Amino acid sequence: MKKVVIAASAVLAMGATTVSAADLGAKMYKKAPPIVAAYDPWDVAFGASITNNYLFRGVSQSNNRPSVTAYFEPRYNVNKDLQLYIGTSASSISFANRAALEIDGYFGIRPTFGAAAFDFGFWYYGYPGGQCIDFDPAGTAGVCGVGAGAATLPNGNVMKKDVSFYEVYGKFAYTFNDYFTMGVSDNYSPNFLNTGAWGNYAAITAKAIAPSTWFGTSGVGMYASGEFGRQWLGTSDSFYSFAAPGIGPGIKYADYNTWNVGIGFTYKVFTLDLRYSDTNLSKGDCNAFTSDFTASQPGFATPINGGFGSSWCGATGIVKLSADLTAMQNLK
């Protein structure tokens, strides 16, 4: 699953991108005597980050441990109000199927109309290096198939070898003034995490930027931001059937809410983000959804979970340090 965040959250990152895109359009016009202004529509954004816990929509993708991310995004500005982009990113993860890397590819279009900014695109989440996780050590009656050479987990959780999937998304952000922006977004996948279940995530975000005078001439900036989202999920295929693994009709994953709030400090290309994140997903339903390989505490039985509980979906504090650059703005 994808990070809520490579940034504090996927939607908040859209707000930041919108601002940089607007700034980019202004900076690409240079004075040239006497009449014609030179214009180079191409630009590249790239960066990296490290965090103590990689969360994607409130759920840990890194087993509540540190994670690093890097991204590369070429952009083409049709004009100052329309940007096309394509990009890729990579993040360290820790999944039950032993996948340790997430490699994403995405593309889209970002039109702006004054203070209103839109973003429409396609995102592919790839998880190479996975191994099918069975519930039967002999592989004779398991979900991976006879002779599949599957691994097993002590808690009985199962996971497919390949959990890659894609989403389409739409985002909208409105900048009220130099200090406040709000946004909404929606992401849809017909086969979330290759479970067979559809997924739809909708969120609302807000970001307030402190006046630059707060820190004098130091160059330090500050912001406060938050997000509230809801993840709807459909029914899995028979691979994840709770009553009879590999045989039954699958399980209806629990829908859940997630939220986060935090503050950030910026200096040149660097951002330090401190955030609190939580969900209302129970430990039992979290285990059924994530197939958490660390789940061992009993007593969390639900209609879709056998009894072990997962800590991957609970309240947590996030510290993230990132560096974000664009060729036009930072490499001249």
Rank of each mutant, 00 (worst) to 15 (best):
I6Q: 11
A8W: 04
L12Q: 12
M14G: 12
M14F: 12
A16M: 11
S20G: 09
S20V: 11
D23M: 14
G25D: 04
A26H: 11
K27E: 11
K27C: 05
M28N: 10
M28C: 03
K31S: 14
A32M: 09
P33M: 09
P34L: 11
D40N: 15
F46Y: 15
F46G: 07
A48S: 12
F56P: 15
G58C: 03
R65S: 15
R65E: 14
S67T: 11
A70W: 12
E73D: 13
N79M: 05
D81A: 10
Y85R: 06
I86L: 12
I86T: 12
S89P: 06
A90I: 12
N97E: 08
A99S: 15
I109S: 04
G114E: 00
A115G: 00
A115C: 00
A117K: 15
F120N: 04
G121M: 05
F122G: 09
W123H: 15
G126D: 14
G126V: 13
I133V: 11
D134Q: 01
D134A: 01
D136C: 01
P137E: 08
A141K: 15
G147L: 03
A148R: 07
L153G: 00
L153F: 06
N155R: 02
G156A: 06
V158K: 05
K161G: 09
V163R: 12
F165R: 02
K171V: 05
F172P: 03
Y174P: 10
M182A: 13
S185I: 03
N187D: 13
P190E: 08
N194S: 15
T195R: 04
G196C: 09
A197G: 01
A197P: 07
A197I: 04
A202K: 09
I204N: 05
I204V: 15
A208N: 07
A208S: 11
A208E: 08
F215M: 06
R230V: 10
Q231F: 06
Q231S: 12
W232A: 01
S236M: 03
Y240I: 01
A243K: 10
P245Q: 07
G246F: 06
I247Y: 08
Y253S: 00
D255F: 00
D255N: 13
N257S: 05
G262L: 02
Y267A: 00
V269G: 07
T271W: 04
L272W: 09
S277G: 07
S277W: 08
L281K: 02
S282I: 07
F289N: 03
D292G: 02
F293H: 10
A295N: 02
S296G: 13
P303V: 01
A315P: 12
T316C: 04
K320S: 14
L321Y: 07
L321V: 08
A323K: 00
L325F: 15
L325P: 04
Q329C: 03
